[in-house]
């Protein structure tokens, strides 16, 4: 009997895990963005003395984890599980980061939704009594994503206005079975929704229906009212996706306009930084959560937040074969109170 389930897609964590520390590391462009003061480490260049961008991305994951460990005075030995994911083929950034860490490892892929996927599973492991402390981490890197999903960096092509800029960054969070919060209290796991978008330069439109679906389902399942939240924030819908998501959610009878934003919009100043529609990538919601949201919650400026990382589950092969881009979104409730 699944006693902790609410409605069709949500669970209530009866022993809500506490987020005891986070670590965030970003690239130079993110370090010039509006949230720069919230990040723990800002890199001077996106190669970081490594031989390849892939190596740099993996190193960022390790550094984000170590930052979080240092802040909480813990070592690798204290951690029961590592839940990690990234965007590269066979999630090599996470696998290679875990190679350097002596922590039992679950590798995850949910495209850019991986941050809340890892936090969901980490929270369940802690709440279920399977672990006392777990680390959840994801990363993305503009240059590794660009060469895997799009064009060579030096190719003189024009980026469409709907394109998004993959965030270079990694965010990690340590969840613990005891401490004083903030807590992960609810998890709403999304279904894959495919609105039939073929344009890989318009990820926001491909993912917005999935985000809307998960958010609406969260309210139906959990019984929360919109006023219960201080902030509802999606992962990387960016400007176009945000507009669509708001529209779709409104059609279902929920008006979240006043408390809703998107990590991809917050992390860059689109006009000044020429990022077109906004930020994207696993690292986008990871660093905005580990930097901005977590720190604002500790200060008490935010008390209950719904974090909804959004992912597009396509590959360059599927796109070339004419497949549309399916979207996914997972939501978690982070609250300063145990409820």
């Amino acid at each position: 009997m699944a006693v902790k389930r609410l409605g069709s897609q949500t669970i209530l964590l009866k022993n809500p895990p506490s987020i005891i520390a986070t670590g965030s590391i970003v690239g130079p462009k993110e370090g010039e963005g509006p949230l720069r003061n919230y990040f723990d480490v800002i890199l001077d260049d996106d190669l970081k003395n490594e031989k390849s961008w892939e190596k740099c991305e993996s190193k960022m994951q390790i550094d984000a984890i170590n930052t979080a460990l240092n802040k909480s005075n813990l070592t690798e030995k204290d951690i029961d599980y590592l839940f990690a994911g990234d965007l590269l083929n066979q999630i090599i950034s996470s696998g290679f980061a875990a190679r350097k860490l002596a922590i039992p490892f679950f590798g995850l892929y949910g495209a850019c939704s991986t941050m809340t996927e890892s936090l969901s599973l980490g929270a369940m492991a802690v709440d279920g009594g399977f672990a006392d402390k777990v680390i959840c981490v994801t990363s993305s890197h503009f240059s590794t994503a660009e060469r895997q999903f799009r064009y060579p960096l030096e190719l003189g092509n024009q980026r469409a206005l709907t394109t998004q800029w993959t965030v270079t960054g990694s965010g990690a969070a340590i969840l613990s079975s005891e401490d004083k919060g903030p807590f992960i209290t609810h998890v709403t796991t999304g279904k894959v929704v495919d609105p039939g978008i073929n344009d890989v330069n318009n990820m926001g439109a491909a993912m917005a229906p999935a985000a809307a679906d998960t958010i609406v389902q969260h309210f139906k399942d959990s019984g929360f009212k919109i006023d219960d939240y201080d902030l509802i924030i999606t992962g990387d819908l960016a400007t176009i996706g945000k507009e669509i998501a708001l529209d779709l959610i409104k059609k279902e009878g929920f008006d979240i306009t006043s408390i809703y934003t998107d990590c991809g919009i917050e992390i860059f100043d689109n006009k000044k930084q020429d990022t077109h529609s906004g930020g994207s990538g696993c690292g986008c919601s990871a660093v905005v959560f580990a930097g901005y949201i977590y720190k604002e919650m500790l200060k008490g400026n935010l008390n209950r937040v719904l974090l909804v990382s959004t992912g597009a589950l396509h590959s360059p092969t599927s796109v070339q074969q004419g497949e549309s881009v399916p979207g996914i979104a997972h939501a978690i409730t982070i609250s300063n109170k145990k409820d």
Partner: peptide, 26 residues
């Protein structure tokens, strides 16, 4: 949430995406 009609959705998205700045680009 109700199922999305893919064609309607595509038309709807086409309506809100910013158009390329044809003149400037040319």
């Amino acid at each position: 949430m109700k199922n999305i009609n893919q064609k309607d959705y595509k038309d709807y998205v086409d309506g809100i995406v910013p158009k390329p700045t044809y003149f400037k680009n040319c």
